[in-house]
Nucleic acid binder design. Structure first.
Length: 185
DNA sequence: GCATCGATGGTG
DNA sequence: ACCATCGATGCA
Protein backbone atom coordinates (compact mmCIF):
# COMPACT_ATOMS: atom_id res chain seq x y z
CA UNK A 1 0.00 0.00 0.00
CA UNK A 2 1.18 3.49 -0.81
CA UNK A 3 1.19 6.49 1.42
CA UNK A 4 -1.88 8.72 1.59
CA UNK A 5 -2.65 11.03 -1.31
CA UNK A 6 -3.05 14.56 0.01
CA UNK A 7 -6.76 15.47 0.01
CA UNK A 8 -8.35 18.61 -1.41
CA UNK A 9 -8.54 20.03 2.11
CA UNK A 10 -4.73 20.14 2.18
CA UNK A 11 -4.77 22.62 -0.69
CA UNK A 12 -7.78 24.60 0.48
CA UNK A 13 -5.74 26.60 3.01
CA UNK A 14 -3.59 29.71 2.63
CA UNK A 15 -0.83 29.53 0.05
CA UNK A 16 2.00 30.29 2.48
CA UNK A 17 1.11 27.35 4.74
CA UNK A 18 0.68 25.02 1.78
CA UNK A 19 3.95 26.14 0.17
CA UNK A 20 5.84 25.44 3.39
CA UNK A 21 4.21 22.06 3.97
CA UNK A 22 4.82 20.92 0.40
CA UNK A 23 8.58 20.86 0.98
CA UNK A 24 9.51 17.19 1.40
CA UNK A 25 6.25 15.89 -0.08
CA UNK A 26 6.28 13.69 -3.18
CA UNK A 27 4.67 14.73 -6.44
CA UNK A 28 3.46 11.90 -8.66
CA UNK A 29 2.76 12.38 -12.34
CA UNK A 30 1.36 9.61 -14.50
CA UNK A 31 1.68 9.83 -18.27
CA UNK A 32 0.29 6.78 -20.04
CA UNK A 33 1.48 3.85 -17.92
CA UNK A 34 4.59 5.57 -16.60
CA UNK A 35 4.65 7.12 -13.14
CA UNK A 36 7.20 9.82 -12.36
CA UNK A 37 7.80 10.52 -8.69
CA UNK A 38 9.83 13.36 -7.24
CA UNK A 39 10.45 15.01 -3.89
CA UNK A 40 9.46 18.69 -3.82
CA UNK A 41 12.34 20.83 -2.54
CA UNK A 42 11.41 24.39 -3.57
CA UNK A 43 8.14 26.33 -3.74
CA UNK A 44 6.83 29.88 -3.83
CA UNK A 45 3.55 31.25 -2.45
CA UNK A 46 1.48 33.75 -4.41
CA UNK A 47 -0.98 34.83 -1.79
CA UNK A 48 -3.85 36.56 -3.58
CA UNK A 49 -5.04 39.51 -5.66
CA UNK A 50 -3.47 41.98 -3.20
CA UNK A 51 -0.05 40.36 -3.82
CA UNK A 52 1.47 42.44 -6.64
CA UNK A 53 3.63 39.48 -7.74
CA UNK A 54 0.55 37.26 -8.15
CA UNK A 55 -0.98 37.04 -11.63
CA UNK A 56 -4.37 37.57 -10.00
CA UNK A 57 -3.31 41.13 -9.09
CA UNK A 58 -4.04 42.06 -12.72
CA UNK A 59 -7.57 40.77 -12.38
CA UNK A 60 -9.66 37.82 -13.45
CA UNK A 61 -8.72 36.86 -17.01
CA UNK A 62 -8.90 33.69 -19.11
CA UNK A 63 -5.40 32.79 -17.98
CA UNK A 64 -5.95 33.33 -14.26
CA UNK A 65 -9.48 31.89 -14.15
CA UNK A 66 -8.50 28.61 -12.40
CA UNK A 67 -6.79 30.52 -9.61
CA UNK A 68 -10.15 32.02 -8.65
CA UNK A 69 -11.65 28.57 -8.24
CA UNK A 70 -11.24 26.28 -5.22
CA UNK A 71 -7.85 24.99 -4.12
CA UNK A 72 -6.76 21.60 -5.38
CA UNK A 73 -6.38 22.21 -9.12
CA UNK A 74 -3.31 22.77 -11.29
CA UNK A 75 -2.66 26.28 -12.60
CA UNK A 76 -0.28 25.91 -15.54
CA UNK A 77 0.71 28.82 -17.76
CA UNK A 78 3.08 29.42 -20.64
CA UNK A 79 5.85 31.99 -20.38
CA UNK A 80 8.91 33.34 -22.24
CA UNK A 81 7.73 31.66 -25.39
CA UNK A 82 9.03 28.25 -24.32
CA UNK A 83 8.35 27.30 -20.70
CA UNK A 84 5.44 26.12 -18.62
CA UNK A 85 5.07 26.76 -14.89
CA UNK A 86 3.30 24.30 -12.60
CA UNK A 87 1.30 25.79 -9.73
CA UNK A 88 -1.13 24.31 -7.24
CA UNK A 89 -4.20 26.47 -6.65
CA UNK A 90 -4.79 26.96 -2.92
CA UNK A 91 -7.40 28.60 -0.70
CA UNK A 92 -11.14 28.85 -1.13
CA UNK A 93 -13.23 29.79 -4.15
CA UNK A 94 -12.84 33.47 -4.97
CA UNK A 95 -9.51 33.81 -3.16
CA UNK A 96 -6.96 33.61 -5.98
CA UNK A 97 -3.85 32.05 -4.48
CA UNK A 98 -1.37 29.51 -5.79
CA UNK A 99 1.92 27.78 -5.03
CA UNK A 100 4.58 27.58 -7.74
CA UNK A 101 6.49 24.29 -7.75
CA UNK A 102 10.06 25.38 -8.49
CA UNK A 103 12.26 22.32 -7.96
CA UNK A 104 12.22 18.64 -7.03
CA UNK A 105 14.46 15.60 -6.79
CA UNK A 106 13.57 12.61 -8.95
CA UNK A 107 12.83 9.43 -6.98
CA UNK A 108 13.06 5.79 -7.99
CA UNK A 109 14.40 4.53 -11.29
CA UNK A 110 14.32 7.89 -13.03
CA UNK A 111 16.90 10.59 -13.55
CA UNK A 112 16.14 14.16 -14.57
CA UNK A 113 17.14 17.72 -13.78
CA UNK A 114 14.17 19.22 -11.96
CA UNK A 115 16.02 22.21 -10.48
CA UNK A 116 13.87 25.00 -11.87
CA UNK A 117 10.18 25.46 -12.69
CA UNK A 118 10.63 25.34 -16.47
CA UNK A 119 12.72 22.19 -16.34
CA UNK A 120 10.35 20.56 -13.86
CA UNK A 121 7.21 21.14 -15.92
CA UNK A 122 8.93 19.96 -19.08
CA UNK A 123 10.24 16.76 -17.48
CA UNK A 124 6.81 15.96 -16.06
CA UNK A 125 5.13 16.55 -19.43
CA UNK A 126 2.92 19.32 -18.10
CA UNK A 127 1.56 21.98 -20.45
CA UNK A 128 -1.55 24.13 -20.66
CA UNK A 129 -3.35 20.95 -21.71
CA UNK A 130 -3.26 20.07 -17.99
CA UNK A 131 -4.38 23.49 -16.75
CA UNK A 132 -7.22 23.03 -14.26
CA UNK A 133 -6.43 19.35 -13.65
CA UNK A 134 -7.65 18.11 -10.27
CA UNK A 135 -4.76 17.31 -7.95
CA UNK A 136 -6.23 14.11 -6.49
CA UNK A 137 -6.38 12.15 -9.74
CA UNK A 138 -4.05 9.33 -10.88
CA UNK A 139 -2.54 11.72 -13.47
CA UNK A 140 -1.26 14.17 -10.89
CA UNK A 141 -1.26 14.15 -7.12
CA UNK A 142 0.91 14.64 -4.05
CA UNK A 143 1.81 12.06 -1.42
CA UNK A 144 3.06 12.40 2.12
CA UNK A 145 6.11 10.10 2.27
CA UNK A 146 6.15 10.35 6.08
CA UNK A 147 9.88 11.03 6.24
CA UNK A 148 11.56 13.32 8.73
CA UNK A 149 10.94 17.07 8.64
CA UNK A 150 13.22 18.89 6.21
CA UNK A 151 15.23 21.99 7.12
CA UNK A 152 13.18 24.73 5.49
CA UNK A 153 14.83 28.02 4.56
CA UNK A 154 13.11 31.08 3.10
CA UNK A 155 13.99 33.90 0.72
CA UNK A 156 12.29 36.48 -1.48
CA UNK A 157 10.64 35.02 -4.56
CA UNK A 158 12.64 34.82 -7.77
CA UNK A 159 11.98 36.98 -10.81
CA UNK A 160 9.40 39.34 -9.30
CA UNK A 161 11.39 42.56 -9.01
CA UNK A 162 8.47 44.42 -10.60
CA UNK A 163 6.20 43.71 -7.62
CA UNK A 164 6.88 46.75 -5.43
CA UNK A 165 7.24 45.96 -1.73
CA UNK A 166 6.02 42.43 -2.35
CA UNK A 167 9.34 41.55 -3.96
CA UNK A 168 11.00 41.57 -0.53
CA UNK A 169 8.59 39.21 1.20
CA UNK A 170 9.96 35.81 2.15
CA UNK A 171 7.47 33.67 0.30
CA UNK A 172 9.97 31.26 -1.25
CA UNK A 173 10.58 28.04 0.69
CA UNK A 174 13.27 25.48 0.05
CA UNK A 175 15.04 22.51 1.58
CA UNK A 176 18.38 23.78 2.87
CA UNK A 177 19.96 20.36 2.41
CA UNK A 178 18.87 19.70 -1.16
CA UNK A 179 21.23 19.98 -4.11
CA UNK A 180 18.28 20.33 -6.47
CA UNK A 181 17.12 23.80 -5.39
CA UNK A 182 17.41 26.36 -8.19
CA UNK A 183 19.37 28.74 -5.89
CA UNK A 184 20.87 28.28 -2.44
CA UNK A 185 19.76 31.68 -1.25
C1' DG B 1 32.73 31.65 -10.33
C1' DC B 2 29.69 35.50 -12.07
C1' DA B 3 27.15 38.93 -15.28
C1' DT B 4 24.86 39.50 -19.41
C1' DC B 5 22.06 38.28 -23.30
C1' DG B 6 18.98 36.10 -26.76
C1' DA B 7 15.33 32.80 -27.70
C1' DT B 8 10.36 32.83 -28.42
C1' DG B 9 5.23 33.46 -28.17
C1' DG B 10 1.05 34.19 -25.08
C1' DT B 11 -1.01 37.85 -22.80
C1' DG B 12 -3.78 42.12 -21.84
C1' DA C 1 6.03 45.76 -24.12
C1' DC C 2 6.29 42.67 -20.87
C1' DC C 3 7.34 38.20 -18.77
C1' DA C 4 6.93 33.55 -11.65
C1' DT C 5 13.10 30.97 -17.39
C1' DC C 6 17.04 28.73 -19.26
C1' DG C 7 21.36 27.86 -21.54
C1' DA C 8 25.10 29.88 -23.92
C1' DT C 9 28.68 33.04 -23.90
C1' DG C 10 32.32 35.96 -22.26
C1' DC C 11 35.39 37.10 -18.81
C1' DA C 12 37.86 36.23 -14.38
Amino acid sequence: MGNPILPLTFFQRDAETVAKELIGKDIERRVDAIIFRARIVETEAYVGAHDLACHAARGRTPRTEVMFGPGGHAYIYFIYGMYHMLNFVTGKTGDAQAVLIRAAEPLGDWHADLSGPGKLARALNLTRAQNGLLLTTPKLHVIDPRNGSPTILTSPRIGVDYAGDWRHKHLRFFDGNSKAVSRKR
